[in-house]
Nucleic acid binder design. Sequence first.
DNA 1: CTTATTTCGGATAAATTTATCCTATTTATA
DNA 2: TATAAATAGGATAAATTTATCCGAAATAAG
Lengths: 144, 144
Amino acid sequence: MFSKACEYGIKAAIFIATQSYEGKRVSPKAISEEIDSPQAFTAKILQALVRNDLVTSVKGAYGGFEIDRNQLSSIKLSQVVNAIDGDSIYKGCGLGLHKCDASHPCSVHDKFVAVRAGLKDMLENTSLEELALNIKSGDAFLKV
Amino acid sequence: MFSKACEYGIKAAIFIATQSYEGKRVSPKAISEEIDSPQAFTAKILQALVRNDLVTSVKGAYGGFEIDRNQLSSIKLSQVVNAIDGDSIYKGCGLGLHKCDASHPCSVHDKFVAVRAGLKDMLENTSLEELALNIKSGDAFLKV
DNA sequence: CTTATTTCGGATAAATTTATCCTATTTATA
DNA sequence: TATAAATAGGATAAATTTATCCGAAATAAG
Ligand code: FES
Ligand code: FES
């Protein structure tokens, strides 16, 4: 469904969110340990999140990654996915036609569009805050 | 969403279905031209469909691929997807946890399971016959 | 039986994704 | 200013997916 990079990116964003809740910055090392991902690869993905203004990075000593607490509720999963995997999951044809187009639809277009809309809706209506709280409460997990 | 192999497999199955409707067998060459896919790679994918008893192959002169007309309505898209991509799209965790498990859920589990159920339902309730008829009527397309 | 045709299947190559390594740059603190 | 700590980013490697090639096996027809 999502690329490995995107899975790591989502989990990293959620973990950063849980720590930013308490005003803590986190390192790629801490992140990769917490979400069980390769450190250097995760660092690359974090850069993409920074470039897309979803996460703030602070260089130098005592630096790290953080998310503005006031933005935790407004940052949606869709933005994280879009920053890493792009928008093909929303816009691309399910059977790989050059573009998804109702006037030249593939065989599964009508049905696929409906499923995709459900996914889009889910991603656009799920905030990092919500996911971070689920982790903090112990209702959900980031690894294993 | 689906792998390239799976996209080709679905389109190939649909094309074979349209031809089997008229009692015609088709070659990998004809298939790859019709669905705009690499021929040798498509041939490999067809073998997977044959192994899974979704498509019948006839070797030798005047051979080719075909689908029993009586089965067109009972073969579902889910079977084609399953033969090529396996069942991870139904069963796998959206964030890559080792298994999707309600007692140890990832952050998006509840919402993801719902989206996945929609996809599963769609695939399990769409027959090759239905898709083949859409192609024959010109309401849907296999390439471009 | 021979031949032409066609799928099967193994080996290999190219492309993409995933992962690692190392150096440069930035920055807080002493 | 010097130093240590930390992200940024380029180069490279490994793994997986996608794609190609070629000979073996099967089969219909002459
Ligand atoms: S054209 Fe294929 S999903 Fe819309
Ligand atoms: S545990 Fe992640 S989707 Fe179910």
